[in-house]
Design a protein around this nucleic acid. Structure first.
Lengths: 209, 209
DNA sequence: CTCTAACGGAACGGATCATTCCGTTCAAGT
DNA sequence: ACTTGAACGGAATGATCCGTTCCGTTAGAG
């Protein structure tokens, strides 16, 4: 609702947003959804989509790119959060879970050929992650590495139960548990974690198929 | 390798197993995989499959049913495990993660119409779960319910990284963390968990579509 | 009143599958 | 040795799904 509907162009501009929002919702729910499902959800015809994006792949790239941007924005916000590092870190992960950008980046990746820009953005995101992690390092239980959080984020966002609100509630429930487990416990050393931690190479290897 | 290959019938009997194993592997990796992929993986022709199962759906039902049986078997083993309940419980969850029956039951469910037998078996499985949980109840952090473990099992088995061995390693890694978080901590009460816990109704509501 | 940007949605063409069909093989019975 | 048929392999079939294109319509801009 920017400026009330003032003619054809305003309507079109509004459709830009509606279509993107619909695409996000549809592909988050089902990464393999057909284009027609997006159009239907947006309440527009198919040609409204093809007027804006030359192909399905282009739309997916746009969504992926936007997702990464949101991820990066959250990371930067976290880095400039000057509260207690552990408090800031918890807020950071909660924000990432709510943003649910995983479904738009790594789940969608593989369904299209990534552009160099995407790789670059992904690299920047991982740098920021590393920075936030480094600042909080002393609060973690020994043995935890940055890459753990990527895997944990995937796990948590794999939860889908009920409507969007309920899903978010449950995700927060298990995120809370995970965070407690990763927090440096006062006394119990907490036994060794089994197996070597995930490595960056393992995570990035999935971007080709 | 039952009795060395003694003619046509023995070969066919062996194929029974090979085909089931292939189907399990293929559909765990990709629930929407085509029948041809199973045949190829098994190293047999398509007709070898259709000789045994009248349709794809029938094969899926068989896999689902077998998965439930394995689940139930693990539950019974856990119930008769007379070690310290907490130790037994941890072993139970590790076994369930390794059995990876979730991918065969709830992920496959929805792709076919469930039979009454399946519902019955699922009911039995959930009763057993409840029994194991009840026996271990005092070891849990306050606020944890049985249904939590269903969701946690889903989360954990959603992890897929590298080959099968590596995937299992990583699943154990995060299962260990989760278990630590759910264990009654000696002192810190551990803040309230956000939102209401999952309910049985929420979990079973997904079996129709 | 005309023109055309922006659409809606049917139609097209390719790809993917489940399932069927037919020719082949080879062990078991004669 | 020969016949027979259970067990197969894999091509052919028919239905379905989906991305993309095409064409007719509409309603604001000039």
């Amino acid at each position: 609702m920017t400026k009330a509907l003032s003619g054809r162009q305003a309507q079109a501009a509004r459709n830009d947003e509606v279509i993107l929002a619909a695409a996000r919702a549809v592909f988050v729910a089902d990464p393999g959804a057909p284009i027609a499902a997006v159009a239907e959800r947006a309440g527009v015809g198919i040609s409204a989509l093809y007027r804006r994006y030359a192909s399905k792949e282009e739309l997916l790239r746009k969504l992926c790119s936007d997702g990464l941007d949101r991820y990066i924005a959250e990371s930067e916000k976290a880095l400039s959060d000057d509260r207690d590092p552990w408090v800031a870190f918890k807020a950071y992960l909660r924000a990432l879970v709510d943003a649910d950008t995983n479904s738009l980046t790594q789940r969608l990746a593989g369904t299209f050929t990534p552009t160099p820009e995407l790789f670059e953005a992904a690299g920047r995101a991982s740098e920021l992650d590393r920075a936030v992690f480094a600042r909080t390092k002393e609060y973690f239980r020994p043995g935890i590495v940055v890459e753990d959080f990527a895997v944990i984020l995937e796990q948590i966002t794999s939860i889908k139960l009920g409507d969007e609100t309920r899903t978010r509630q449950l995700r927060h429930r298990y995120l809370t548990l995970m965070l407690e487990a990763m927090h440096r416990a006062g006394e119990e050393p907490g036994g060794e974690l089994p197996g070597p931690p995930p490595s960056m190479a393992e995570l990035t290897d999935r971007w080709r198929a």
